[in-house]
Computed example of a mutant assay.
Amino acid sequence: MTTILFLIIAYLLGSIPSGLWIGKYFFHKNLRDFGSGNTGSTNTFRVLGKKAGIAVFAIDMLKGTIATALPIMFGLHTFSPALFGLCAIFGHTFSIFDHFHGGKGVATSLGMILGYNPKFMIFVVIIFLVMVYLTSMVSMSSIVSGIIAFLATLIFPALHFIFTNYDWLFTFVILFITCFIICKHRDNIARIRNKTENIFNFGLNITHQKHNI
């Protein structure tokens, strides 16, 4: 019963729609009416600016970290902490406070990894930043980082690098998150193929997209 209670709490934590609330209460804008219509940190950067984008990213990431840390803080060892982080990711993308809409789960997923293994989070961040520099795109960087993170959970434990043993539930969670991120970025993938994806005015833009933001 305690485990179920904490899984629900993790979901509710993830459901906090930080981008939507910050936009409404501080900028009097509904993010769903601007840009991509997404309430995550990327659209917040585009619509509300850097300070709001950083704040939303930090809050969304923290949601995943706190949710993952819940079983550790309260001594619950029934399931891998990653399962609680996954509930927060579900909450972020299907928020009960936003008519079961939400963001794409990237920042909250990163927060889950931070709560589970900070060293692995650093590895994923490095991959993400390298991809941002190469592609100038958050969307492709998120997808590639997810794929590499999943492969790393299969390879690193065998090499005793970062992980000392396998946690198959964590591996499954990373695989699920990666597939979920790819699914949530279907429109972005279509734009990448058409060379019309939004890019930052930074990096090499190796795929030659044409839409700066």
Rank of each mutant, 00 (worst) to 15 (best):
M1Q: 10
M1R: 09
F6C: 00
F6V: 00
A10F: 02
Y11H: 08
L12S: 06
L12K: 13
L12Y: 07
I16K: 00
P17N: 02
S18N: 10
G19L: 00
W21Y: 02
G23D: 00
K24M: 13
K24N: 09
Y25V: 12
Y25F: 13
K29S: 12
L31Q: 01
L31F: 03
L31N: 00
G37M: 11
N38P: 06
N38M: 12
T39R: 14
S41L: 08
T42E: 14
T42D: 08
T44N: 10
T44A: 08
R46F: 12
V47C: 13
A52P: 01
V56N: 00
F57Q: 04
F57Y: 10
A58V: 12
A58W: 08
I59F: 04
I59W: 03
D60I: 13
M61F: 03
L62R: 06
L62T: 05
L62I: 09
G64I: 04
G64H: 00
I66L: 09
I66T: 01
I66P: 00
I66H: 00
I66A: 02
T68A: 02
A69E: 08
F74T: 02
G75Y: 04
L76M: 03
H77L: 15
T78S: 06
F79H: 01
F79T: 01
G85I: 03
A88S: 06
A88M: 02
I89R: 02
G91A: 14
F94I: 14
F94S: 11
I96T: 10
F97N: 04
F97T: 03
F97H: 04
H99P: 06
H101E: 08
K104N: 11
K104W: 13
G105W: 10
A107N: 02
S109P: 03
L110W: 06
L114P: 02
P118L: 08
M121R: 05
F128R: 04
V130H: 08
Y133P: 06
L134G: 06
V138M: 13
V144E: 13
I147F: 13
I148V: 13
T153Y: 05
T153Q: 14
F156K: 07
P157E: 11
P157F: 03
H160Y: 08
H160F: 09
I162G: 05
T164H: 15
F172D: 14
I174F: 15
I174N: 15
L175R: 05
F180T: 14
F180Y: 09
F180N: 12
I181E: 10
C183A: 14
C183E: 13
H185I: 02
N188V: 07
A190Y: 09
R193K: 05
R193M: 11
N194L: 08
K195S: 10
N198P: 02
N198Y: 03
N201I: 09
G203W: 05
G203Q: 05
H208T: 12
H208N: 13
H208W: 12
K210P: 09
H211G: 06
